[in-house]
Amino acid sequence: MTVPEASVAVELERLRGTVATGFAEVKGSLAVLVERSTRTERDVAQLREDTQNDIGDLRAEVEALKKNRWPLAAVGALTGVAGAATGVISLLMR
């Protein structure tokens, strides 16, 4: 080997080391991104499950409130009938 060939071989070996180091850094970065993506997917799934549970609880509370509400239409009708009866009685009493 001559001197230029030796320096080219050294430079190629240095370049190979630089490329290998770059690939290792890229692989490390990709591993971090995959881990973050996996964690985010788990967090989203947990949030979705918690939200569905909360919605189910709210539906149960709304149904309980619907069962305990006053029958306003019936109360209104009774009040109207009572008022009309009172008016009729007051007219007849004169």
Rank of each mutant, 00 (worst) to 15 (best):
D43T: 04
S7D: 09
A31N: 10
W70T: 01
S7C: 04
E49L: 05
D54H: 11
L78F: 03
V44Q: 11
W70Q: 07
T21E: 13
R48F: 01
T2A: 08
T38L: 10
V81K: 01
L72Q: 12
R36H: 07
E49V: 01
I89L: 13
G87D: 08
L65M: 13
T21F: 06
V32C: 02
T21M: 04
T79L: 14
L58M: 11
L33T: 08
E11N: 04
L47Q: 14
R59K: 15
E11Q: 12
R94A: 08
A74H: 13
A85V: 14
E11L: 12
V8K: 15
V34Y: 07
S90H: 08
R59T: 05
G76Y: 01
G17V: 02
V32F: 05
V26D: 07
A77F: 04
A73K: 13
D43F: 03
L47N: 10
S37M: 07
T40D: 08
L72K: 10
K27A: 11
A64I: 01
I55W: 03
A60H: 08
N53A: 15
D43H: 07
K67H: 07
V3I: 11
E5H: 06
K66W: 03
L33E: 15
G17K: 11
V88K: 05
G76A: 09
V19F: 13
E61Q: 14
V19E: 12
V62T: 08
F23S: 08
G76W: 02
T18G: 03
V75E: 15
G56C: 05
G56I: 00
A9D: 11
L33G: 03
G76S: 12
T51H: 12
I55C: 02
V10Y: 08
R16A: 05
G80C: 09
E63D: 15
